[in-house]
Nucleic acid binder design. Sequence first.
DNA 1: CCTATCTCAGACAGACTGAAATAT
DNA 2: CATATTTCAGTCTGTCTGAGATAG
Lengths: 165, 165
Amino acid sequence: MGGCRTELEQQILGAYGQVFRAVQATSDPLWMELDLSMAQLKGLVALRSGGPMTISHFAEVLGVGKPAASMLADGLVRHGLADRADDPVDRRRTLVHLSPRGEDLVARLRQGGRERLRAWLDQLDDSDLEGLARGLAALAGVVGDVDCVQVLETIGAGASPSPAG
Amino acid sequence: MGGCRTELEQQILGAYGQVFRAVQATSDPLWMELDLSMAQLKGLVALRSGGPMTISHFAEVLGVGKPAASMLADGLVRHGLADRADDPVDRRRTLVHLSPRGEDLVARLRQGGRERLRAWLDQLDDSDLEGLARGLAALAGVVGDVDCVQVLETIGAGASPSPAG
DNA sequence: CCTATCTCAGACAGACTGAAATAT
DNA sequence: CATATTTCAGTCTGTCTGAGATAG
């Protein structure tokens, strides 16, 4: 039994696909009712991924011009999914960030609702639940470093954006 | 330690959010490059959720008219994300279903890429990995029933769609 | 003739851009 | 004056619907 870890990993990847497809299926009705354009959805994803950012950076990430990014941010704010805040460092800048509702929406859309997951968890026996808790906690520790870092470089970004004068 | 299960579940839900946000972050660049309309994305999600379905059912699920659903399916097929197949039961009907590429795209978009997950798994110690494998396998068993059932009712659906004659 | 799907034409919404205006 | 953002005008792509055409 030399390749136990590899087998285990393979098994985990398989179960991962199965479980999270099921969890995400919870949010399929939400997808169908969704009244957002693709541009707005991309904006939500970008904001969730990159954290608060300036309009210029927002434009760059989305691959569109600054007017488009500005108008897009506007629409998101009107939908109550994002907010603007003055950049404390430079008051010409505006930082866009997801509102709690925006965070919630993207989380639901991509991760599904947690109620169903909880119900499934209830059906596990004690030692399976413990194993899952242990493994997931360890995994969370490994991936945990991801969430920081980005906000810092976000604010500093936006230098020399346009090569053509 | 009376409420151990509840605590454990709470901990799992927390770790779940953290881990899967990180995993999904791997597909953020894919989101930004995505060249699909919202209608098309919804079509993909509907197809993944509901399995192969007739145009009429597709229209119903998406909440649009049949011509729109037909044209939408057409666009998906042109993109190589879906295929049509004759319904063996009734040859007037066409069944739309995701192509392998379509399946892959939705999976990537919603679940993220697995390569990064695998790399993270490599960093877990043996017993954490075993616990995760055990717990996830058990969970997969619990949710496993979800995938069937739907195809059957899909084909039978489509009766008395319009109340106004 | 009825049903499922597709084609067509026209209406409509939203996104994007370059140029000009505004704020710091 | 320079920079970041916003407003404006115009264009363009893509969706939706209802009516009619085409298969089974």
